[in-house]
Simulated assay, not measured.
Amino acid sequence: MSEEDKEIEYEFREWTVNELRDFASANNISIPSGSKKNDIIEILEGVVSHPEFVDRTKENDLDEELKSGEKDEDEGEKGPLFRKDKTKKFWHQPPYSTLLNIDLAKDSDVAFYDLSQLVDKFFDKMLREDFIDYKISGIALKTSASLHHHKITSVIKQEEEIQKQEKIEEMRQRTRRKIPKTLSQPVKSKMKMTSKDELYDAMRAAIIETMQKKEKLKRRRLKRNKEKEQRKEEKSNASLPKELLKHISGREQSVEELHDSWFNKIKTKIKLENKDKTSFYNLIGIINEDEESVLGRKYEFIRMFLALMFLSTNNRIKLNQDDEFKDIEIFIE
Rank of each mutant, 00 (worst) to 15 (best):
L244E: 02
D323E: 09
F82E: 13
R172M: 08
K89V: 09
Q173C: 02
E234I: 02
D22S: 11
K298C: 04
E52K: 10
K84M: 07
P241S: 14
K36E: 07
I102M: 01
F280M: 08
D103A: 05
E257K: 00
E169P: 01
Q163W: 06
S154L: 08
P95Q: 09
E333N: 12
A140T: 03
D63K: 15
A140F: 03
E9N: 08
D55M: 01
Y299N: 15
Q212D: 15
R231Q: 10
P94M: 07
Y299G: 14
F53M: 03
H149G: 09
K188N: 13
P180C: 00
S254I: 05
G138R: 08
P51G: 04
K269V: 05
K298M: 14
I43G: 00
E233G: 00
K214L: 05
D61E: 14
D327T: 04
K267Y: 00
E70K: 13
S261I: 12
M191Q: 10
T175I: 02
R56A: 14
E19N: 06
T182P: 05
K157V: 10
K277M: 02
N274I: 01
Y96Q: 13
I207Q: 12
G138T: 08
K242M: 09
I270H: 00
Q212T: 15
S249H: 03
V255Q: 02
I179Y: 07
E75W: 15
E75D: 12
K190P: 08
